[in-house]
Write a protein that binds this DNA or RNA. Sequence first.
DNA 1: TGCTCGACTGACCGAACGGTCGGTTAGTAT
DNA 2: ATACTAACCGACCGTTCGGTCAGTCGAGCA
Lengths: 213, 213
Amino acid sequence: MENNDEDSKIQSNGEQAILEAAEILFSEKGFDAISMSSIAKLARTSKPNIYHHFKSKKALYQEVLNSAARRSSALLDELVDAPGSFSQRLSQFSAGQLKSILAHKRATQLILRETLSGGSQRGREIAQHYVGESFSRLVAMIRQGQQEGEFREDLDPALAAFMIVSGNVFFFQTAPVVEHLPDISFSDDADGFSQGVMKLLFTGLLKDQEDAA
Amino acid sequence: MENNDEDSKIQSNGEQAILEAAEILFSEKGFDAISMSSIAKLARTSKPNIYHHFKSKKALYQEVLNSAARRSSALLDELVDAPGSFSQRLSQFSAGQLKSILAHKRATQLILRETLSGGSQRGREIAQHYVGESFSRLVAMIRQGQQEGEFREDLDPALAAFMIVSGNVFFFQTAPVVEHLPDISFSDDADGFSQGVMKLLFTGLLKDQEDAA
DNA sequence: TGCTCGACTGACCGAACGGTCGGTTAGTAT
DNA sequence: ATACTAACCGACCGTTCGGTCAGTCGAGCA
């Protein structure tokens, strides 16, 4: 073999095909609903060959989860240090996060499912790392915006960040259901949704009348 | 038999026990991960007896889903027509919805799972009915608040309603994960969370400076 | 007393599950 | 040629799955 690397060998085509097939199926139906045979079939290989590359069904699932999280957690970091006002940066971050979610639907679905079904500590760790990463950066951005006088200081920055992430995730999560609801005009317009959310979060629902609720 | 009702017979103890056991297990791990044997064991009965009461595993699951949706979709309706300003009513509705979610964790988990895994049209129908019911009332309330001059009119009422529901659902959904995150102080305080959310949604992030973004 | 009927069960079914075994192929190094 | 190895597969293992069958038991009615 011409490869003398210790750690970072390039995976063979076959292994990649297995991972992709597994990601597709696991993200659609979850761990328990998917059989190794169906993965083998979709990957155009045999079941024993999967066990040649991965030691068990759980190990394959974890690997799929890892690669999904790895792919999704990039891309956001650049937006944190962008120029502009904090309002603009916040809007860009929110829109970028939603775009990233929609660009990695299968990965998002996998991580979301793992978050909901509190199984395997590993899944929760991934979820924490995945959302926690961008979340704490978001909080820091808002807090800085408060210190520099752009944002109100009587609001919990973590709560504002939570609402942004919440809206984005929920938008993705309920897209199939929400499409057929009346009242809703933003179901297939991610950009419009992002803009609307930020406008709402920036200016608030109440009319400006110096209220003292 | 001393019962001559046509339609609304009280279920026997056994059937109720099966439904409860199934709800517990299905809500924890989902449809595919739960076997009929495990349900029978938890309900202290036998597998054939489950098939005596329900014609298949899917039928049992649908029944569990139905009863869960039935139980959860009540309770909110009263709050819609409560007295007070629209701000107060909106806050009460949001807090009430979150309280209802937390009071029916298993039912919420079931419906949420069904929403995520787009399977069975029936599940989607239930989700639509479940969230759609309270959602459209929420939209109507906000729209009325706009017409009566309490809320800004340049905001999509459906989007505001969406954010309220989104925050509540996401709060429940991420509670186990969010507990171990720094930055977050509201993880185990539903009331505080509700108040914070409404304060944010009412007044907005920006300082009042008559901006023209 | 006998009869019916709903609630319930142990034993069992074919099918599908996760996983293993022995063996084949193809490329590479000696 | 020989030897070694990663990639791959058909056939098979024990187990468990959803579901069925034949039958038991006890309460209500005749």
